[in-house]
Simulated assay, not measured.
Amino acid sequence: MSVETTPAPEHRAIYLTGPTASGKSAVAVELARLLDAEILALDSMTLYRGMDVGTAKPTEEERGGVPHHLIDVLDPWESASVAQYREWAVAAIRDVESRGRLALFVGGTALYLKAMLRGLFDGPGADPAVRGRLEAEAESLGDAALHARLAAFDPATAARLHPNDRRRVVRALEVIELTGTPFSSLQKQHERPAAGVRVFALELPRPVLHDRINRRVSAMFEAGLVEEVRRLQSAERPLSGVAAQGVGYSETIAHLGPGGPDLDRTIELIRARTRQFAKRQGTWFRGLSEVVPLAVEPGEPAGAVARRLADRIEAVADDPNPPD
């Protein structure tokens, strides 16, 4: 006799993801209205208070009266681990469900998505001495040198981490040193797909997405990205490493520094890095078997996309044993 089990909170939620500038936020608001849902941000950068322009954080008007959670929970000098995010997210799901509503996650941070779907990689605990030494080496030798060292020991992990992502590069090297095993090999225990979770990724034709990215970057500067970065830099405490490395922020910080690139060059650098980021996001999402792609036609209204998504979600709910 089979025994039915109630799915974990994170598996009862609905997930809407896709590359940056694919229109997730607008579609999510329309979808939340159709499903009587509340939105939970699946984004590592909109966690930060005061970092609004460069993160394309939806304004109150853009939120359309739909409650949004997991936004503005950290100061710019703070940081949070994936484990902390997951803890906050599960608590937020329970809070939303207590009001009889669905939890709709929206965002493009792939590590957060994977943690919600498959749990956390249970690696060795931090070793302050090893980590401190690696941090000091990153400071003296540079991030590129540590990334090159990681590539020699663990090419798979190095390939998915940006050379400037010092925190994760140091962690990967720390795990290798403590265990004698590549980080990517240990993570295989974290590769079992979740069953029955509703996860959708918006997909646009590449030229359309690139055009949207280019226009979004221009709009950010028109909306005051340079002024936002100046304000963040003049705060009593400096930006955390994670916040300062955000796409758009690191380039603008360099622009404002001595000998930095001019504004036009900075805009082009941000556009290029954002396109690269979107490509990496697509690779991540295609690598998660739980993710169902949803093609979006050029110019298709957010409401129409949301209606198609709602129909798909209702069809899954009506069929407890959908085909693979």
Rank of each mutant, 00 (worst) to 15 (best):
A138R: 11
L186W: 06
R231N: 12
T157E: 10
V229M: 05
A148W: 06
R216M: 11
R167P: 08
L150M: 14
S218I: 10
V175F: 00
A156H: 14
S234N: 06
E137S: 12
A158G: 11
A243Q: 02
P238H: 15
E177C: 05
S240E: 09
P207V: 01
E251R: 07
E177G: 04
G246T: 12
E228D: 02
L146A: 10
A201L: 09
L150G: 07
R216V: 04
F183P: 00
A223Y: 00
R149F: 13
T181A: 09
V197R: 00
A145I: 13
N164K: 11
R215N: 11
H162G: 08
G180C: 13
R216D: 08
H190K: 04
R149I: 10
V170E: 00
A235V: 11
H147A: 15
N214W: 03
G142Y: 05
V229P: 06
A223F: 00
G196K: 09
V170H: 04
Q233F: 01
T252L: 05
R160N: 10
V226G: 06
A148E: 10
P193T: 07
A244G: 03
G241H: 05
L202Q: 03
A219W: 03
E139M: 11
S185D: 13
R206I: 02
G224Y: 01
E191N: 07
R231E: 13
A138Q: 04
Q233S: 08
F200V: 06
H190V: 08
A219N: 12
A195P: 05
R160D: 05
N214F: 01
Y249R: 06
D165C: 08
H147D: 13
A244H: 01
A223I: 00
A144T: 15
V247Y: 04
G241R: 11
L161C: 13
R168G: 12
A235Y: 06
F183G: 02
T179R: 02
H162F: 05
P238G: 14
G142Q: 10
V197E: 00
A194M: 04
A195L: 10
L161P: 10
T179L: 07
I176A: 06
G241W: 00
R230I: 10
S184C: 08
P155T: 14
G248H: 00
E236K: 14
L141F: 15
R215C: 08
D143Q: 15
T157L: 00
E227Q: 14
E137N: 11
A172H: 02
L232A: 07
Q233T: 06
A145Y: 15
A194R: 01
R171K: 14
L239D: 03
A201R: 01
E227C: 12
I176L: 09
E177Q: 09
L150C: 15
E228W: 00
S140I: 13
G180L: 08
H210E: 07
T179I: 04
R192K: 08
P238R: 13
T181M: 06
H210M: 05
G248Q: 02
S250R: 09
S184M: 09
I176D: 02
A145K: 12
H190L: 04
L141S: 15
Q245K: 11
G180Y: 05
R166K: 15
V199I: 12
A195M: 02
E236N: 10
Q233E: 12
H147C: 15
A148C: 15
Q245W: 03
S240T: 11
V242F: 03
P155S: 12
L173Q: 02
A159G: 05
V208Y: 02
A243H: 00
